[in-house]
Design a protein around this nucleic acid. Structure first.
Length: 148
DNA sequence: ATTCTTACA
DNA sequence: TGTAAGTA
């Protein structure tokens, strides 16, 4: 990451999920959930469309809503009721958000050495003399401590 | 062409 | 929930 800051920013600019916005017809086709259901779920506050200036304006949905709708539909297909499905997906989303914050906070730097990748996970000791490094090689992750 | 709200099945 | 109607 540190070695290629420009390319990393470019990557985020191109693949930002926030740039993916769909209208109700698209979201319906993507998820298999009817537009009627989508509007009903919104009325129930189970999902949220982007803010609409005009109440008559067409709804727009962000990527996160696509993920949420897919999740609700998954549990509904599993036999859960709509409200139960929403509770289920909320648990998953809460956990996903927690993991996201955790990983973002835990990872300091990532260095690619070609044959393996080293991830700096920060100070290992209270005296801040040892650094914990995660090493990923051939799909396996091991750890090592570096003195400094 | 697509979406919106309302209303009825 | 699906669908029809009349709009925007």
């Amino acid at each position: 990451m540190e070695k290629e800051p420009v390319q990393y920013q470019l990557f985020r600019k191109i693949f930002s999920a926030e740039r993916m916005v769909f209208r109700i017809g698209e979201l319906s086709a993507m998820t298999g959930v009817s537009s009627r259901q989508l509007r009903y779920w919104e009325q129930k506050n189970y999902i949220q469309a982007m803010e609409r200036g005009d109440e008559q304006a067409a709804r727009s949905y962000r990527f996160r809503e696509y993920a949420r709708v897919m999740g609700i539909k998954y549990f509904q297909d599993q036999g859960y009721t709509l409200s139960a499905s929403v509770k289920k997906i909320n648990e998953y989303i809460d956990m996903a958000n927690f993991v996201h914050v955790f990983v973002k906070e835990a990872i300091q730097t990532i260095e690619d050495y070609g044959d393996h990748i080293e991830i700096d996970l920060g100070w290992f000791d209270e005296a801040t003399q040892q650094r914990l490094i995660a090493v990923q090689k051939d799909g396996k992750v091991t750890y090592k401590i570096i003195e400094r």
